[in-house]
Write a protein that binds this DNA or RNA. Structure first.
Lengths: 145, 145
DNA sequence: ATAGCTGCAAAGGCTTTGCATGTTC
DNA sequence: GAACATGCAAAGCCTTTGCAGCTAT
């Protein structure tokens, strides 16, 4: 079991819940993936690996993973909700390709700073944000439509 | 008929379509509102004013308004899709209150510039973006929970 | 025994679509 | 009368929930 799964196990058990095989499967699949996956893709992957975790369990476990802080739920807009593990990921935002659907990450600390200022000016106490840039990725730009 | 409705009429007719009373009602309601409204609220307002426009027509007309460029569809995250008219609105982003649900706008041109740079670095050709900051608005901060 | 899990299927919430009817040119 | 609009209700999509049965302690 990798370190993230172990942390999740600890989190689960610290709440007096059970670290079941289904929960472990879902967690490991999320931690193993280096893409942004939505719940349905995750379910499909699990099925193809022979896991019997149901859709309901996938959704319920994803909620637990988000609660634990080990996974973030990202709203990419256009109805796309995806999950990414947080370990080793500094804060970042997303570049969403409108042609192939791929998602890249980017970091721009100064943007964060400017957001803080904007909030101060507006007397708004921020707790989080979501920044998505839509357009065409490098691969799709060459044969751009 | 106000200037925006007139522009919409021109757009509609330039496409060989009809500027029907239903379309006019929906458009005028959107242009008259200074809030961010979702389709359902819009429909409710229209009903309360005696308009007979149906839900389907509301959705279909909103699509036309967005196509025309006179209205923007904003994804506030968390499943909230709202519309705002563009006339006289410079580009801006949104502050979404997690307690009362209110939406404020803010402008920070430098953020736009930094986004451009981030895209250049990533070889990404941007066509648009969505930036939402979540937190608590001034009113909700005083009696904050 | 008791509390916690799971899968299934049904229910939700919002948006889109098919179709029959009505309108416009 | 050909193309376009409308309302209604049904269908879609994705996510959540209720419930009966199962598992772990």
């Amino acid at each position: 079991m990798n370190s993230e799964s172990l942390q999740f196990k600890n989190y689960i058990e610290s709440k007096g819940l059970l670290f079941t095989p289904e929960r472990q499967c879902v967690a490991e699949e999320v931690f193993a993936s280096h893409n942004h996956m939505d719940a349905e893709e995750l379910l499909k992957h699990l099925k193809s690996k022979g896991s019997k975790a149901s859709r309901a369990t996938v959704y319920r476990t994803l909620d637990l993973l988000v609660e634990s802080g080990l996974v973030k739920k990202i709203d990419l807009g256009e109805g796309r909700l995806v999950y990414e593990h947080t370990a080793g990921h500094p804060h970042h935002d997303h570049l969403v390709c409108l042609k192939c659907g791929s998602v890249q990450e980017f970091e721009e600390p100064l943007i964060e700073q400017l957001q803080e200022w904007a909030c101060e000016k507006a007397n708004f106490k921020p707790t989080g944000h979501s920044l998505n840039i839509y357009g065409y990725c490098r691969g799709c730009t060459t044969g751009k439509r």
